[in-house]
């Protein structure tokens, strides 16, 4: 089953095009990450798919409802936690959750039950009766997500859910997000500018740049887009470096950093072959590291200044 599908979404503000035709197909029960630098159009995509703003062109269905013709159907099925916390600062955490229960037209008892449950799950029980204005950024974000969950949404949009959080709160958020998918089978549409976050959480990742999706796939698939890994060998002086560089065909030497990059994977055989070659030629290496491509390489390559669409 498909939870979110979009074809040719476009959006401009004045003569500035923010989205240049976005196509998406996200299966139900999966975590999808939209990865991109600031200004790529991530938030705009979320705003359109969550009925907050209309698209200029294209069609989309969320949870089986047309975005325009059945907007209320979409709204009933989704939950949105935006980049800027959408909590009522003048109310307590508990009151915020009960407000959501009322607006979801839950019965009083059911609303109380869910509020209590969420407070416990998100470790907010102790702070339940305190005004939200006194909360830390991490607590606020947790409450924000808890409010989103009161309505038991099928599809959850998380717009940069950990931006501005300290590493510890970020880990907590990740645990919560993983738990949602595991326990409740919801579909999560996540935007992030952190590669690690996408790598950690998402089943599929799309890289958004300049209003276009420039690559899409699993983390592994994306990593395969960039050229393979390398073995980096460090030398004490230019003499050793020069001698070593003569041994390998495709190696690139950096005379200033005194290091040699040899293309190759991280298998023992490859590493041993390099060491043997150095040993046979009596070249003395100081240290050796094996580097595999990570999403950073993918990201930098795809969102570089060239703007070439790699697909």
């Amino acid at each position: 089953m498909v939870a979110i599908s979009a074809v040719g979404l476009t959006k401009s503000y004045g003569d500035k095009a923010v989205l240049n035709g976005i196509d998406l197909t996200i299966p139900a029960g999966s975590v999808f990450a939209l990865l991109g630098p600031n200004g790529a159009g991530k938030t705009t995509t979320v705003q359109i798919l969550s009925t907050l703003i209309p698209a200029d062109g294209g069609v989309a269905r969320v949870a089986g409802h047309d975005l325009v013709r059945e907007a209320d159907g979409v709204r009933k099925a989704i939950g949105v936690t935006g980049q800027f916390s959408a909590v009522d600062n003048l109310l307590t955490a508990e009151e915020n959750l009960l407000l959501m229960a009322d607006l979801n037209h839950l019965r009083r008892r059911e609303g109380r039950r869910r509020a209590e449950d969420l407070l416990r799950r998100f470790d907010l029980t102790e702070a339940a009766r305190k005004p939200v204005a006194t909360f830390s950024g991490g607590m606020r974000r947790k409450l924000d997500l808890a409010m989103t969950l009161v309505g038991d949404p099928k599809v959850i949009f998380l717009d940069e859910p950990t931006t501005g959080l300290d590493p510890r709160s970020r880990r907590t958020m990740w645990e919560i997000i993983r738990g949602l998918v595991a326990d409740h089978g919801v579909t999560i549409f996540l935007t992030t500018q952190y590669l690690e976050e996408a790598d950690q959480l998402a089943d599929r990742i799309a890289v958004l740049d300049g209003g276009r999706i420039v690559a899409e796939g699993t983390a592994e698939e994306l990593k395969r887009i960039v050229p393979g890994g390398r073995i980096r060998v460090q030398f004490a002086d230019t003499v050793q470096l020069g001698a070593a560089a003569a041994l390998f065909d495709y190696a690139t030497a950096d005379a200033e950093a005194l290091r040699l990059d040899i293309p190759g994977d991280n298998s023992v055989i490859t590493v041993k072959a390099v060491l043997d070659a150095l040993d046979n030629a009596s070249v003395r290496a100081e240290s050796l590291t094996v580097e595999t491509p990570d999403l950073d390489d993918v990201f930098l390559m795809l969102t570089g200044s060239t703007g070439v669409g790699v697909r």
Binding site: G73, R75, A86, V87, L103, G151
Partner: peptide, 12 residues
């Protein structure tokens, strides 16, 4: 504040 955007994405 963000709260009004939350209201707008709900079926109210």
């Amino acid at each position: 504040e963000g709260i009004v955007n939350r209201f707008r994405t709900m079926a109210i």
